[in-house]
Amino acid sequence: MTAILAPTHTASWTTTAFTFAARTLRKLLRTPQVFGIAIVQSVLFLLMFRYVIGGAIGVPGVAYVDFLVPGFVVSGILFTGGGASVAVAEDVASGQYDRMRSLPIPDSAVLAGRAIADASLMVLVGLVTLIVGFVIGFRMNTNAGDLVFAFVLLAVYALAFAFVFGYLGLVSGSAQAAQGLSILAVPFSFISSAFVPIATMPGPVQAFAKAQPLTFMVNAWRGLLLGGNVTRTFGHNLGYYVVGSLLWAAAIALVFVPLAMRSYRKR
């Protein structure tokens, strides 16, 4: 039998991050409960909004299905993220994070690997949602460059939020608790411009909706996919929302990366 030799080097940051990301993605894709439910949930709600609730919602200057689909793709990050924090909580409970913490690898690379995998899943769900959107009547008014840029932005938002959900999974203590925390996605997505125009909301709610990250992200996406007809209905130009959304993503990462690092290495 071959003797195993001790490795001469430790794994680099990149090797660690991508090894752990690959493991996590493989797991997510092989666990239909996670991937499948994220897709089904997204599509189900999209259909409900399009055919049940949508008829009663009037949006000035644009067909509701066109208004809805970009909002749905972006806010889908939050709903897919709930599953991510449940998965993190499960890994903690099963001792897999103990093994990671006992290995000579950088903590930040493990968390980054996890976030890369979760963000990839979020973008993938977003892509599927967009395709379903086309089937139910969504039409873009954009060019290839803007479309690619929109997906780059989506990946950035997803990465920032992946750290939030990773953190929630680490501190929740159990998969059930993590599931409970994922309800946070509801107020954040509903009190935003994702599903309905902000203008109809009462004062304080409207103030929150205008300032919070999801509105910036949704409006940036909408502007990039729908073009001038829609950006004219915004309070600001498209650049304001794109820059604002990136600032928000940076702020979220600045807060939640250190928080996640601290709770990962809590001892």
């Binding site: 794994a11 690959a22 797991k27 092989r30 666990t31 093994r99 290995l103 000579p104």
Partner: peptide
């Protein structure tokens, strides 16, 4: 990791060991 094969599990940990 239950969703990986035995070999995949071991390779991953081996890579992380360096």
């Amino acid at each position: 990791e239950p969703a990986l094969t035995g070999r995949e599990n071991l390779r991953m940990v081996a890579r992380l060991f360096g």
